[in-house]
Amino acid sequence: MHDPLSSTFPPAGRAARPVSGAAGGAGTRAHFQDAAPRLRGDLGVWLVILLELLTFAILFVSFAFARTREVALFNTSQATLNLNAGALNTVLLISGSWCVASAVAAVRRDASAVGARWLLGALVCGGGFMVVKLGEYAQKLASGVDLSTNTFYMFYLLLTGFHFLHVVVGMLALGYLWVKTRRGRYGSHDCHALETGAAFWHMVDLLWIVLFPLVYVMR
């Protein structure tokens, strides 16, 4: 069956680069595949990750510079945000990332069942993040806040909303990978798709690591 996450570019085999042409046996090849520097995950998805990082960089820096014009407004608006919810969500994303990294490590040593449990843990963390974030949005909407309220809330809703969409996409990928991992689809022979999904999920975590102190704490 075709696996949409496992398309490889360049083909995985190209990562193996024996240092000299003399010893080209299969064993040597496998050895060098482990030792040589290698980007974990699909190159195409990594290019998407770079694009996302660039997009968020523009949003983060725009927020920071827009704040210089309305410092008092940003500070009073930020005071209405729930710091506890923001911190809890940081913990959930970090823990989710840890679960995914542990799942990849487990699958690489062919412990699919263990890997699947780690992925389930990541899904629980991601689900928890979504519940907390939706709760925050509900609170803000109930108090009459929307995109046009002021510059701070416009940025808050855009930044966290755009990030939330990435969490949703990441959750879909993790759910798919969880099902496949449970069926033993991945292992030491092939964990390219899992590594690709993991890279995307860690990016979501990385973005929140900048977003949390910037939007919730800096005043």
């Binding site: 520097p37 290698r38 980007l39 974990r40 990332s97 840890w98 995914v100 990294a101 590594e195 993991a198 890279a199 860690h202 990016m203 975590d205 990385l206 690591i209």
Partner: peptide, 12 residues
């Protein structure tokens, strides 16, 4: 997160 979760420690 970059070095250990994204495994860029082992990347080019």
């Amino acid at each position: 997160v970059c070095l250990d979760f994204l495994e860029l420690r082992h990347a080019p």
